[in-house]
Computed example of a mutant assay.
Amino acid sequence: MNRRAILFHGTGAHPDVLWLPWLRRRLTERGYSVEAPHYPGLNTEPVATFLPKVLANHTFDAGTVLVGHSGGAALLLAVLEKIDSKVDQAILVAGYCTRPNTADEPVLQEQYDWEAIRAHVRDLYFINSREDPYGCDDTQGRAMFERLGGTQIVRDDGHFGDIDQEYASFELLDRLID
């Protein structure tokens, strides 16, 4: 089976920051075809108009692994709800399903079809920190885990990369991806 990974950066970021280039290299070395798109409209454009563009740019199937950080992780909920196939894995790093702070979050939907999301992924991981400065914390991870199952991993590791938190590699992700 053709193994493909699609890596989604966070709000205001791009594919060449934090651990994303490192993970891209690691997965490529392991034989994955890796896509790491740049979506400057992520979490600035309403998800209702942004999501169709994302869905049109990618193919999703049983060999696909999805990884998202922060706003990119929140985007994965909408992606998983709307695709018409089942992907292998989805890993949401510092993800959230409700407003984590007082900022606008156009990437979030008003509500989710949790059964559809669960039906479109074989294995789900939620990696959150108890000390996330943006509120993308373990309570957000727990909220998604309680609705979707999967595995919740809680760390004390900030936002898993940020302007003031260098995070050049992320060994845990490499181990989690089949």
Rank of each mutant, 00 (worst) to 15 (best):
G158F: 14
P133H: 13
F145W: 14
G31Y: 08
S33L: 06
T11P: 00
D88F: 00
S85P: 01
D178V: 10
H9P: 03
L27N: 03
T64W: 07
A90M: 04
F126I: 04
P46G: 09
W22H: 02
L173C: 05
L7F: 05
Q89Y: 14
A74C: 09
I83S: 00
D113I: 02
E115H: 02
H14A: 08
I83M: 08
L23A: 02
F145H: 15
P21I: 04
F60D: 07
S85H: 04
L55Y: 04
V54M: 01
G135L: 07
Q89M: 14
L108I: 11
K53F: 03
L173T: 11
H38F: 02
R147S: 04
R175P: 01
P52I: 10
V107Y: 05
I117F: 08
R26I: 13
G135F: 11
T28G: 02
L77Y: 03
L172C: 03
L7P: 06
A62I: 05
N128E: 09
R3N: 14
H58W: 10
R30K: 11
H159K: 12
N43V: 06
S33V: 14
D137H: 06
F126Q: 13
C136P: 07
E131I: 15
T59L: 13
G41V: 05
R4P: 02
D84T: 12
K82Q: 14
D88M: 06
H9N: 03
A103I: 02
R26M: 08
T139W: 07
Y39R: 09
S70V: 01
G135S: 07
A5V: 03
E171M: 08
T139S: 12
G135K: 06
A56N: 02
D132H: 03
G41E: 15
R4K: 15
T28M: 09
Y112S: 12
D113M: 01
H38I: 01
V107A: 13
T49I: 10
E166F: 03
I163P: 00
R122L: 13
R130I: 12
F50T: 02
L66Y: 12
G12I: 08
E81Y: 03
N101G: 10
L18W: 13
P52Y: 10
V121P: 06
D174E: 13
K86Q: 15
A48W: 00
F170Y: 13
I127V: 15
D162A: 14
V67I: 15
V154D: 10
G141Y: 05
Q165E: 14
T102E: 13
G161C: 07
L108E: 07
P106R: 07
D157L: 08
G95Y: 01
R155I: 14
Y125Q: 08
G150M: 12
D164L: 11
G150E: 09
G161N: 00
A90F: 06
Q109I: 12
L66C: 08
Q165A: 11
G41N: 13
L80T: 10
T64G: 10
R142G: 02
V154Q: 03
F60C: 13
S70I: 04
V47Y: 08
D16W: 00
F160R: 02
L20T: 01
Y112V: 04
N128W: 12
G149N: 06
